[in-house]
Design a binder for these strands. Structure first.
Lengths: 350, 350
DNA sequence: CTGAAAGCGCTTACAG
DNA sequence: CTGAAAGCGCTTACAG
């Protein structure tokens, strides 16, 4: 059915080795073909609709033009889905994408990496965290690839090319803004399992401003199996505020815009105004954020820049496998909008 | 480095063929092994961390346990990203996922299918439309797979297993609701390029109620290269209403919640109330929709059910390649919320 | 300048 | 019950 190199060679009247050489000019090889011969092969290939079988090439240890993307597919989406952006970027570069979920588990990551390796993938893009990067298994499995770009909130210990996708800067900026505009009792809606660093960054930044956060200033929300993020926020706030006469906080920082919108609904239910009574800041800068009433302050993950960095590092590495690993930092940014109170230019003067 | 079947055979003191048979019991083969021999092979494999090379298997025409997912990755996301859901479903079934964007182009789809084919993929999940399904190239390329599940708004002409993901039912339900609650001049914000059927369903349903839609009742929004969907809606409404003293519509149906939220912001800017002055209905049922003020009516795409159907059809087909193609319809549903006016139970009594 | 041979890692008819 | 051989489709040293 599908034509092979044999068919092409036969049709062009040359040997398979000559046909192979004709189709891969510029390859180091002591095979030199007459231009006319080469043309004949190319015509035969075109006539037969021939495509090199990448499986056969891979079996000989050649590159497969495939990149494995290992991302946490279960997390609530941000403004867009990163793996989608990466897949598109790779496709435009004429690479194919293997997509796998890392299920936030080091064993799963190691398993997926081994699967990638055995499938002859050229490189891997891995969304990682401290726990994953600390795994011996993962550290070993990732050696199998010519190229590996690791995206992690902190510097990775995997010894690969690394993009530090820093969310802590944005959290500090948000806290700075809230404090500068007079808030003294902010709470933070965040999934504890995901990233302990987020909660401690929040608390530390409050302390840096001389504030003492309440013991329950961080409200744990587990969005992993939730289908309704707004409801999660409402339940968390209900649990915290049960029995209190007055609301015990004057600002809400949330780890996603969906949670933030849930918090706003909760406040509305109590007759409280945003930002006058309580300031609210979300995260991930959902498309809708700027069109809500009031427009919702958020955190820009800078995903287009992130994809560009991945692209740059990945293809540079494939070109130069032996260069020393690189490290680049990309900070998420606080995006001021009215729900945060104050103003963008004069955060200290609400 | 990576151990091969040879290594396992050597360690177990058997021939490669015996090792192969030991690792694939139940395979039709005239090779019969003593249980003790089999155990020795399994132990050797475990000790070496052996993994069968799927490339080598594929080269012999065996299944690769890989599914290609060809989806329109560029469209604004719905509640979640379908390709992500599918990738997770496949991973749980111990299949790997090749992900490619079809770029809303029949040539790109044919190209991607050929790439999949040459990579020895077992089956494909394709998001299609009438134009793609009409392409001879696509029709031919899709024959290469043992299994192909096509998801399309209408019945596919590709001759494969087919899920009709019907959005027209929901559009009619929304129009019915709007008319029943007294709206007479609805407009529809929709990308014309995407699906002419959407606009004509909307217009036809208005006519069925005896209404004559305005010539500019359908407002074309092209979200393909937009980064700001809310702004798109605002510009479309600005363009339509320029120079009018009063707003010329009493309801907005939008092809996404993001557009709907933009329309609501536009109305707010004019001092109009939702739903009292203008009813608004979005689509895709974003996480935030139910928590907005007023809660936003939408369209539920029923993606969890869609993924289940894909799973069912795909694996049934892989088991029984020669069964006749199946066809199942899954209708999206109008989700009433206050922004649509009236009430869920008594749509006719606002 | 071009062809025949070996081999990547597997599986399966075929001998023994 | 087990092993030797051929072959999937390619590429590359090696002969000529």
């Amino acid at each position: 059915m599908r034509s092979t190199l044999q068919d092409v060679a036969r049709r062009a009247g040359v040997s398979p080795s000559a046909a192979s050489a004709a189709l891969r000019p510029g390859r180091s090889s002591n095979v030199r073909l007459a231009e006319a011969t080469r043309q004949r092969v190319l015509e035969a290939a075109a006539a037969l609709g021939y495509r090199t079988n990448p499986l056969a090439r891979a079996l000989r240890g050649e590159a497969t033009r495939t990149i494995g993307v290992l991302w946490w597919l279960g997390s609530p989406s941000g403004r867009e889905f990163m793996a989608r952006r990466i897949a598109r970027m790779l496709q435009v570069n004429d690479y194919s994408t293997y997509l796998a979920d890392h299920f936030a588990s080091a064993e799963q990551v190691a398993e997926a990496l081994k699967d990638f390796a055995v499938r002859g993938i050229d490189g891997v893009v891995l969304e990682s965290d401290d726990t994953i990067a600390a795994s011996r298994d993962v550290q070993q499995a990732i050696q199998a690839f010519k190229a590996a770009v690791v995206v992690q909130p902190t510097e990775t210990s995997l010894g690969t090319d690394n993009i530090v996708h820093d969310r802590y800067v944005a959290i500090r900026e948000a806290v700075d803004h809230l404090v500068a505009t007079g808030r003294r009792r902010p709470v933070y809606l965040v999934a504890r399992h995901a990233n302990l660093g987020k909660a401690s960054t929040f608390l530390d930044q409050l302390r840096r401003h001389g504030l003492t956060p309440a013991p329950d200033a961080v409200l744990d929300v587990d969005e992993r199996h939730a289908d309704n993020f707004g409801q999660l926020a409402i339940e968390a706030l209900d649990a915290r505020e049960a029995g209190r006469a007055n609301v015990g906080f004057d600002a809400v920082l949330a780890t996603s815009d969906e949670l933030a919108v849930g918090a706003i609904a909760w406040l509305r239910g109590r007759g409280l105004r945003v930002p006058d009574d309580v300031a609210v800041v979300g995260a991930n800068d959902a498309h809708m954020a700027g069109f809500l009433d009031p427009p919702l302050a958020s955190v820009d993950r800078r995903e287009p820049e992130l994809v560009s960095l991945i692209e740059e590092k990945l293809f540079r590495r494939l070109d130069a496998p032996d260069a020393p690993p690189t490290r680049t930092s990309l900070a998420m940014r606080f995006v001021w909008r009215p729900s945060a109170g104050g103003s963008a230019q004069h955060p200290g003067q609400p």
